[in-house]
C-alpha cells in the first residue's frame, strides 16, 4: 500500500524537452556572448582572470573548449563585454566552431549561431545510428563530474533511452565511445584499446573541458590535452561538466533529430 502511495506521489517526471521548453535557473551559465565593441583598449582583465587561458583580450576571443563556465571573466570585465547567457546549446561538430570571437556578437546573428551548433551526420551514417545509438563511456582522468552528469542522462527526468540512445557495457556492443578527462598518461593505452575494440563505423564523442583541451589540467606533465589529436572526434561537448541537456542537445543534433 505504501509502495502504491509513493508511486502515485512520485508522478511522471520526464521533462518536456525537446518537444516543450527546458527550464534552467537564471544563474545557469550557458553560451557566453562576447561584444568586443565594449572593450577598453589594452584591457586584459578577462584574460588575466581566466583559470585556463580560454579567454584572450584584444581582439576578444574565447575557446569554449577550454572554458570552465566559471564567471571569472565576466566578473572581471569592467564593461560587460562578456556575459553568460542561459543558452545550453553548446555542442559542435568541429573544434574550431568552439572558438568564439567578440567581433560579431553571436546573439545578433541567428544564422551564425545556428551554424556553430553541431550538424547532422551524413545520411548514410544517420541511417545506421539515427534511431539506435549504443555508446561506451571511457573516463580518462575525468574527475567524476562529467561522468556523473552522463550517468544522470539515464534517469527518469532526462530519459536518454526515449531517443534510442543507450550506454552499454562493452565496446563490442557499442557504436561509439564517449571520452571524458584530459587523457592521463596512465589511461591513454586503455582508451586506444577501447576505441580499437569498437567495430566501424564508429563515433567518438568528447565531453567536457578536460577532454576538449585539458581543462583545469592543461599542461600538467602526467596528462594530455584531452583526446589525442590522431583520433577523429565527431562531437565536442563543452562544459565543466556540461549540463545533461547540453549533451542531449548535441547528440540529437548529431543524429539530425533537432
Amino acid at each position: 500500500m505504501n509502495l502504491i502511495r509513493a508511486r502515485f506521489r512520485q508522478g511522471m517526471r520526464t521533462m518536456a524537452w525537446p518537444d516543450g521548453p527546458a527550464s534552467l535557473p537564471s544563474r545557469f551559465r550557458g553560451r557566453p556572448v562576447l561584444d568586443q565593441s565594449r572593450c577598453i583598449d589594452g584591457c586584459r582583465a578577462c584574460a588575466d582572470a581566466c583559470p585556463t587561458g580560454a579567454v584572450h583580450g584584444a581582439p576578444l576571443r574565447m575557446d569554449l573548449g577550454a572554458c570552465l563556465f566559471c564567471p571569472a571573466c565576466a566578473e572581471a570585465c569592467p564593461t560587460g563585454a562578456i556575459q553568460f547567457s542561459s543558452d545550453f546549446r553548446l555542442a559542435a561538430s568541429a573544434r574550431q566552431d568552439l572558438q568564439l570571437s567578440g567581433e560579431a556578437p553571436a546573439s545578433t546573428d541567428a544564422d551564425a549561431e545556428t551554424r556553430r551548433l553541431a550538424v547532422a551526420l551524413p545520411a548514410a551514417t544517420r541511417r545506421l545510428f539515427g534511431r539506435s545509438l549504443k555508446l561506451r563511456q571511457v573516463s580518462a582522468g575525468g574527475c567524476n563530474g562529467c561522468e556523473a552528469d552522463l550517468n544522470v542522462t539515464g534517469i527518469v527526468v532526462f530519459d536518454l533511452g526515449r531517443f534510442g540512445v543507450q550506454f552499454v557495457a562493452s565496446p563490442r556492443h557499442a557504436d561509439g565511445i564517449v571520452v571524458t578527462g584530459p587523457v592521463t598518461a596512465n589511461m591513454e593505452q586503455a582508451l586506444r584499446d577501447t576505441w580499437e575494440a569498437v567495430p566501424s563505423p564508429r563515433l567518438l564523442i568528447a565531453v567536457g573541458a578536460c577532454a576538449l583541451s585539458g581543462g583545469p589540467f592543461i599542461g600538467s606533465a602526467p596528462c594530455g590535452a584531452g583526446v589525442p589529436s590522431d583520433l577523429h572526434v565527431d562531437l565536442f561537448v563543452p562544459g565543466c561538466p556540461p549540463h545533461p541537456l547540453t549533451f542531449l542537445d548535441g547528440i540529437l543534433r548529431m543524429l539530425g533529430r533537432l
Binding site: S139, A140, G141, G142, G181, P182, T184, A185, N186, M187, A190, P216, F217, S220, A221, P222, C223
Partner: peptide, 11 residues
C-alpha cells in the same frame, strides 16, 4: 589505481 593521476598536487 593510478590511472587517473593528473599531477594535481603540483598544479
Amino acid at each position: 589505481l593510478g590511472y587517473q593521476h593528473r599531477g594535481a598536487e603540483a598544479l
